[in-house]
């Protein structure tokens, strides 16, 4: 067909917003609330969805994904919580230090790569640290539709347990908080063992925790389809490298602190993306030829594809070697 050929732009649809609140949650975490600039309603969303926040950091565009943690039925306000990462690439520091109430920003429509399986008889949430945020939205959604949920939440200390007190007070029989500094830990084997048939488990937290839950569940005989996880990889810095772009017919250099995707965007090359964390598959790019080694950091490509050297996910993966040519 071609009724009105409109080529899809990279990324999800954008919404112009104003920062309506900036609330310190504890020493590390700050909550940001947004209202629409046009005064209209936000779309409702499904628990587990994220939005990509566009930051203008002194001329450099940063695009970071954050889980939406507001009530999915609340069309007036969206909220995210940002954990300050002093060792990171600077997006969270920018949010903490430079974004203030009244600032105008762009965020994307909600995108969900971590959705509830609505067939579940019970939803078992396992959170570590800032990984609590999607579960705040999911629990609110399930409360509305009468879903059965339970949360087990590991925090470093009571003082750093974002939203732990609020969640426990509101749901005393559903929320269990484990404080690291008191030597408390989730008794995972026993917990999984005691679940009714038809339970789905969801984990969001540090990579070590995700691996631990997936492995323990597998050993206990849980089907893969009943174990859900969300793992956004952040792009890691690395040695600068050159890339030949065959469609655009030019060669660019990826700097130490930027991703290949960011370098493409800086050069004005329209490259597709969605999650920017190696999870959604949208930015998958063909490698034409290479002489060197890939540093694959995504969770999208199968191991054999990674080994083949024929594909790269520019949002998180890098390259070390003499030459690289990609289909962009």
């Amino acid at each position: 067909m071609s009724a009105s050929p409109t080529k899809a732009k990279a990324g999800a649809e954008k919404i112009s917003v104003v920062v309506s609140a900036k609330v310190p949650v504890n020493d590390l975490v700050t909550r940001f609330e947004f209202k629409r600039q046009d005064g209209g309603p936000f779309p409702t969303f499904s628990g587990g969805a994220h939005t990509v926040v566009e930051m203008n950091d002194a001329g450099r565009t940063r695009l970071n994904p954050y889980s939406l943690m507001s009530d999915p039925e609340d069309t007036e306000t969206y909220a995210i919580s940002v954990r300050r990462d002093d060792e990171g690439r600077g997006g969270s520091l920018f949010m903490h230090n430079f974004v203030n109430v009244g600032d105008q920003m762009n965020i994307t429509y909600p995108v969900n790569l971590f959705n509830l399986d609505l067939r579940a008889r019970k939803h078992l949430f396992l959170a570590g640290g800032i990984g609590i945020t999607p579960f705040v939205a999911m629990s609110k959604q399930l409360d509305r539709i009468g879903g059965n949920w339970e949360l087990h939440y590991g925090v470093r200390s009571a003082a750093l347990g974002s939203y732990a007190e609020e969640l426990s007070t509101k749901n005393p029989n559903k929320v269990h908080v484990y404080e690291d500094d008191k030597g408390e830990a989730i008794a995972l084997e026993a917990l999984l063992n005691g679940q009714p048939l038809g339970t789905h488990v969801y984990v969001c937290g540090p990579k070590g925790m995700i691996d631990w839950v997936r492995q323990t569940a597998k050993q206990a005989g849980w089907p893969d389809d009943n174990v859900h996880f969300e793992e956004f990889a952040a792009p890691q810095p690395g040695e600068p490298f050159e890339v030949r772009l065959c469609k655009s017919d030019r060669t660019i250099t990826v700097g130490e602190h930027e991703s290949l995707l960011e370098a493409l965007e800086r050069e004005g090359v329209d490259a597709p993306y969605l999650c920017r964390g190696g999870a959604c598959g949208q930015c998958e790019t063909d490698v034409i030829r290479h002489d060197g080694a890939f540093v694959h950091r995504d969770h999208w490509l199968e191991d054999e594809v990674k080994a083949s050297g024929k594909k790269i996910m520019p949002c998180v993966s890098r390259f070390v070697g003499a030459s690289l040519e990609i289909d962009r």
Binding site: E13, Y109, G281
Partner: peptide, 16 residues
């Protein structure tokens, strides 16, 4: 399938 899995809110698609 890959295309459809990636259809997002606010960006519907069509074909004949």
């Amino acid at each position: 399938l890959k295309f459809l899995l990636n259809i997002q809110q606010g960006a519907p698609a069509r074909r004949l």
